[in-house]
Design a protein around this nucleic acid. Structure first.
Lengths: 153, 153
DNA sequence: TTAATTTTGTTTAGCTGCTAAACAAAAAGC
DNA sequence: GCTTTTTGTTTAGCAGCTAAACAAAATTAA
C-alpha cells in the first residue's frame, strides 16, 4: 500500500476514533433527555424499520436480544418509543412516539452538521469524483457488514 | 442537502456504527492476549508519540487521566508497553515493548484489510478524484477534533 | 532554604452498555 | 393435546469510562 493511501486509511481511523470519543457524552436533542449514541441509533433503526420486533432489531443492530430489551425499556420510560402487540401477544412491535420523532429530527440535523464542511466540498465536485466517493463508502460498508455477520454466526 | 449527499452521510454513519460493533469483541493480534480497540488504539498512540506521559496521552486520546492510568496498568501487565521515568521521578514515559510492536504490526495489517476493497477502487482512480477524497476526510476530521476539544474545555 | 502551589499519576465508587445464561410465556408443529 | 420453537425479560458479571479524593514529586515564591 502506498504512502498516500496509507495516510488516507489513517485519517479514516482517526475519524472512527474521534466519533467514539464524541459519542461518549450523552446529548440533549431538544426534549430534556440526555441520550447516548446507542439510544439514538436504536431510535433511528426503529424509524427505518417500522413495527420491527426485538429479535429482528437485535439482528439488524448486531447486539443480543437482552441488550435491545434493556435499551428499549429505557427509551419507553423516556416516552421516546412505544411498545405494541400488532401481530400477536408474544411479539413486541416498536414505533416512535411524537417525542421520538422530534429527537430523530434533531439528531439528523446534528449529524449533518459534522459533515457540513465535507458536504460543501462534495457539492463543488464533478460527477465522476462523487461516484468514486460513493463506491468507496459502499465498499467499506459491505466489508464491515460481512464482518459483523461473520462474528455473530 | 440533496438526496445523493444525504445517502452518502447515511452510509458514513453506518460505517461508524458498524466499526463500533466490530470493536466490541476483543481480538488476538498474534500474542495470545485478547485486546480491545481502546487498548490497541492506546498502543498506536504511544507508538506515534514516543515517550509520551499519562497526562499528554489522556489529552491526545480525549479521555481522563484516570482512564489512561487504568488502561496502561493492564497493558503493562500484559507486557505490551513499558513504564519509564526519563525526565524525572514524577513523570511516567511510555514505550512499546517488542511484543507491543508485534501487536501493532498485526493491527495495521488487520485495519488495512477492512479497506482493501476501497483501496483497489482508490488506486484505479485519477489524481483529481483522490484529491477530493483526501480533502473530504480531512474536513471531517478537523470538525470532529474541534468537537472533542470543545467538549473538554 | 523553606514553604506554598502546581503538576502528575493512582485509586476508588459509580455509571452505561454490553454478553451469556436462566427463565417465562406464547406460538407453531406434530 | 402435547412437544418444540420462538420471542422477550431478567440477572450476574465484565470493560471502559468519569469525577473526585488522594499522594507524591516538581516548581515557584518568599
Amino acid at each position: 500500500m502506498n504512502q498516500e493511501l496509507q495516510d488516507l486509511v489513517d485519517q479514516f481511523h482517526k475519524i472512527l476514533y474521534l466519533y467514539s470519543v464524541i459519542g461518549r457524552k450523552p446529548k440533549d436533542y431538544g426534549t430534556g433527555d440526555l441520550l447516548y449514541f446507542s439510544e439514538i441509533h436504536t431510535i433511528a433503526m426503529i424509524d427505518r424499520n417500522r413495527e420491527i420486533n426485538i429479535t429482528r432489531l437485535a439482528d439488524v443492530m448486531g447486539v443480543t436480544k437482552g441488550a435491545i430489551s434493556q435499551t428499549i425499556s429505557k427509551l419507553v420510560a423516556k416516552k421516546l418509543i412505544i411498545r405494541k402487540n400488532i401481530r400477536n401477544l408474544k411479539e413486541v412491535n416498536l414505533m416512535l412516539s411524537a417525542k421520538g420523532r422530534k429527537v430523530l429530527k434533531a439528531q439528523e440535523a446534528f449529524q449533518n452538521e459534522i459533515f457540513t464542511f465535507a458536504a460543501s466540498l462534495y457539492e463543488k465536485a464533478g460527477s465522476t469524483d462523487r461516484e468514486l466517493v460513493g463506491r468507496l463508502f459502499r465498499a467499506i460498508t459491505a466489508n464491515m457488514e460481512e464482518r459483523v455477520r461473520g462474528a455473530q454466526a
